[in-house]
Structure formats: structure tokens, C-alpha cells
């Protein structure tokens, strides 16, 4: 009884049972992304308010970082894309965007659209060049349709 009385007299007790730290904004399974190129399917999906969902991130951690290849479910189809901008906290000098951006590509690395209408981080140049091999997919085609780098 005494303890309950004490608790009632103490107005500063304001703890809650769950933690309230901020989320990490990671790109993982079922994250919604924003298509930023002018491909037909991407434009229609964004206009309908049904942005694509991640169904696979092609790396070992299964968490998407900048320049990673992802498979998305978009308008009932499976398409591949490259992450070109993330909400997550980035390293120094790497831009952080207000949305998780994606550019759709096909299996050879050729982008489906012809123009990217948001800025692209310059570090993608190096990352995509490293990921491109002589006989595999050529991801650097994406850089040539970018309009602006930050």
C-alpha cells in the first residue's frame, strides 16, 4: 500500500515499456521504393500510388546500400533495379536523400527509361564501375542517362 501511495505521489515517473529510438531506414525486404526514371512501367506505378516493393536485395547481408541491385515487385511484375539514393544516414560527403530512389534496369544492365529526373550521387560512378565486369552486365549505362550529379 505504501509503495502505491509513493508511486502516486511521484509525478515524475514517466517511463514507458517500449523503446523509442529512431529507425534506421534500411532498404530490406518489402521496403517501398520510388522509381525516378521515365520508364513507362515505373511512371505508371508511381502515378497509381503503388510504388514497387523490394523482394530481394542481391548481397549477402540482404540490406540494400547505395549502388546495390534489387529485385522489385512492380505492377504485378518482377523487375530489377539499382538503388541510386537512400534515406539512411550515409558516410561523410555522400548525399542522403529524402526518399529511397531506384532506377529500373533489365538483366544486361540497360536502363528501361531514358532519363533520370533527380540528382544522382557521384560516388555511384565508382561503385557501378567496380561492379561491372567485361562479360557480365554493364551498369554504367545508367550513369549516361542521369541529368545531374551531387
Amino acid at each position: 500500500m505504501f509503495r502505491s501511495l509513493l508511486n502516486r505521489l511521484n509525478p515524475t515517473k514517466l517511463s514507458c515499456g517500449f523503446h523509442t529510438s529512431t529507425c534506421l531506414n534500411e532498404v530490406q525486404l518489402l521496403t517501398r521504393l520510388r522509381v525516378v526514371d521515365n520508364s513507362e512501367i515505373g511512371k505508371r506505378a508511381m502515378a497509381e500510388g503503388k510504388p514497387p516493393k523490394v523482394i530481394c536485395v542481391y548481397n549477402k547481408k540482404r540490406i540494400g546500400y547505395i549502388g546495390d541491385r534489387v529485385m522489385v515487385a512492380i505492377k504485378g511484375q518482377k523487375k530489377k533495379g539499382i538503388l541510386v539514393g537512400l534515406k539512411q544516414t550515409q558516410n561523410v560527403k555522400v548525399p542522403k536523400f529524402d526518399s529511397n530512389n531506384i532506377v529500373l534496369i533489365d538483366d544486361n544492365g540497360t536502363p528501361l527509361g531514358t532519363r533520370i529526373h533527380v540528382p544522382i550521387p557521384t560516388i555511384l560512378r565508382t561503385i557501378l564501375k567496380e561492379r561491372t565486369h567485361a562479360k557480365g552486365a554493364d551498369y554504367t549505362k545508367l550513369l549516361s542517362i542521369a541529368t545531374r550529379f551531387v
Binding site: K93, P95, K96, F97, S99, V118, P119, V150
Partner: peptide, 17 residues
């Protein structure tokens, strides 16, 4: 905000680059 897309960049003040 560049091309209607919010962008933030963190810099170190004493970065040699």
C-alpha cells in the same frame, strides 16, 4: 532541394579534401 528532391550532405570541417 535539387530538382524537387531533398538532399543532405554531411561534411567534416577539417577534411583535407
Amino acid at each position: 532541394v535539387v530538382d524537387h528532391q531533398g538532399v543532405e550532405i554531411r561534411y567534416e570541417l577539417y577534411d583535407p579534401t
